[in-house]
């Protein structure tokens, strides 16, 4: 079972993607999507360096909701910062954040989150994965920002991946 389906969640996601893309649940499409979900992970298995073990679906759901809320809030902040940049230029700067997360898959998820949330850009990661260089659009208080970053994003990711 493990050899036939190296990534069951990926198979399921590909199957659903095929059905949504075709907008039909006819038997032929069900079969083709199942074939895609079966074959693609088998062919991709040698490309993936590390197997992903995901724990705690509840934490994932809460993290997704938190990221969604942060995306909306920081969208409005960045939009306001752009509109008022003539009278009050944004205080952009680079900050260094010490990281505790070491898992490569978790770091990939963290980089996706920081880039999707407007106002922060993942710029550089140290080779030993201990320090992250982040560019922030409008920084109020550095210590507070790092605290928020670590409690909101990094700790749930550590719970999920490690």
């Amino acid at each position: 079972m493990k050899r036939l389906f190296p990534a069951p969640w990926l198979s399921l996601a590909l199957w659903l993607l095929w059905l949504v893309l075709n907008l039909s649940v006819s038997p032929g499409n069900l079969l083709l999507g199942a074939l895609l979900g079966f074959l693609a992970p088998l062919m991709m298995a040698p490309l993936r360096p590390l197997p992903i073990r995901i724990r705690r679906p509840g934490v994932i759901l809460r993290l997704l909701l938190l990221v969604g809320r942060d995306v909306i809030v920081s969208n409005l902040q960045v939009a306001w910062g752009v509109l008022t940049c003539g009278s009050r230029p944004p205080r952009s700067c680079f900050i260094k954040i010490p990281l505790d997360l070491r898992d490569p898959n978790g770091l990939a998820a963290l980089s996706m989150i920081t880039t999707v949330v407007p106002g922060t850009i993942w710029s550089e990661l140290a080779l030993d994965r201990s320090i992250l260089l982040l560019h922030v659009f409008d920084l109020d208080d550095e210590a507070q920002f790092i605290e928020h970053f670590k409690t909101t994003y990094e700790r749930p990711l550590m719970e999920i991946f490690e």
């Binding site: 995306v71 909306i72 969208n75 960045v78 939009a79 752009v82 940049c85 003539g86 230029p89 944004p90 952009s92 680079f94 880039t115 999707v116 949330v117 407007p118 106002g119 850009i121 710029s123 560019h135 659009f137």
Partner: peptide, 19 residues
Amino acid sequence: LRMKDFFQRMHPPALASTL
């Protein structure tokens, strides 16, 4: 168009690709 520095200019395009 309005931001002064390249890294500042990287932030506003995220508005269109998210919200």
